[in-house]
């Protein structure tokens, strides 16, 4: 089995008494798009920066692309677009990509060719020779994406890549992320925008107060604590309603909500309703939205914190 792109066994970061990261453990499969979600200040950027040696972790055990976290040479295979990326105003888009290529030790000829390709990919070819100071926020992010890919990385870390970008730009960035996955790269996206991540991520982790509250595939997170909803023809008769509520089921008008691991688990309830002459109009599986999973996870960590 191929080793994970990122395998964190234990990662902590303290600033004095403040714990920015608390015993974080995480695994990111190779070739996947991984979304790290969390409210502002949850520790998402600190986690990424710790993996990339920008922040010095207090305690760290784990691997990045099979090498220990902090291994300098491994960073040649890593791309990074920081949150609020600030590239010098005096450089053109092409020069920004070239500068990153130089630091990543990409040979000059290769860097030139790659810069050309990438600037075209991100839709900046026509503006590549204009100064960064003249770019809009969206254009800067595109150039940021191009520089993150110039060393042909195996894993790319994108910290809030759509921050401040208009809807059109967001769609473009999503397409670029999908293309990266098709090319076999691992993409680690940090975001507080659930909808963005939901559309591209294969796996997500939810972070709050420096801890990983939830992690897994989108499927496993949204299907957890499955619920089924049964709708009857007309409101549920009062005596049946009282009986069901007495058994702990939620009843509202013509809707009855039940939790069950799978559809087999609700057959007994259906039999019960039919035996009482209740006509069933519809039955459907209710999934949690990522937003609900997110809020639940964040609130649960918040409650633990306040204890």
């Amino acid at each position: 089995m191929e080793a994970a792109a990122v395998e964190i066994e234990h990662l902590s970061k303290r600033y004095g008494r403040f714990e920015a990261l608390r015993e974080v453990a995480l695994s990111v499969p190779r070739g996947s798009v991984f979304g790290l979600l969390g409210p502002n200040g949850a520790g998402k950027s600190t986690l990424v920066k710790s993996l990339l040696t920008i922040v010095r972790p207090t305690e760290c055990r784990g691997t990045l692309l099979g090498e220990r976290i902090g291994h300098r040479r491994t960073l040649a295979k890593v791309g990074y677009l920081p949150e609020h990326a600030r590239f010098p105003e005096y450089l053109t888009g092409r020069q920004i990509v070239g500068f990153t290529a130089g630091l990543a030790k990409v040979p000059a000829k290769q860097a030139k060719r790659r810069a050309e390709e990438l600037l075209e990919t991100v839709g900046m070819k026509d503006w590549a020779d204009r100064k960064n100071g003249t770019y809009s926020k969206g254009m800067r992010q595109r150039v940021g994406l191009a520089q993150a890919l110039v060393n042909d990385p195996e894993i790319v870390f994108l910290d809030e890549p759509t921050d401040g970008v208009d809807p059109g730009g967001r769609i473009e960035i999503r397409k670029i992320i999908e293309r990266m996955r098709e090319e076999g790269r691992t993409v680690f996206v940090n975001s507080h925008l659930l909808g963005e991540v939901e559309q591209v991520a294969d796996e997500v982790a939810i972070m709050a107060h420096g801890r990983i509250a939830e992690s897994g595939t989108l499927e496993s997170l949204t299907r957890r604590d499955n619920r089924y909803e049964i709708r009857t023809l007309g409101p549920v008769p009062a005596e049946v309603r009282a009986e069901l509520e007495g058994d702990g089921l939620e009843v509202a008008g013509d809707r009855i909500a039940s939790t069950a691991a799978d559809a087999k688990g609700v057959q007994q309830l259906i039999d019960r309703l039919r035996s009482r002459g209740v006509v069933i109009r519809e039955m459907k599986e209710l999934r949690f939205t990522l937003e609900e999973v997110f809020l639940k996870a964040v609130q649960s960590v918040g409650k633990e914190e306040s204890r």
Partner: peptide, 16 residues
């Protein structure tokens, strides 16, 4: 300027 937020990260995340 080099050490400002969003600026140093790119250089520090490189194999140097």
């Amino acid at each position: 300027e080099f050490m400002a937020e969003g600026s140093a990260g790119v250089a520090l995340s490189k194999p140097i």
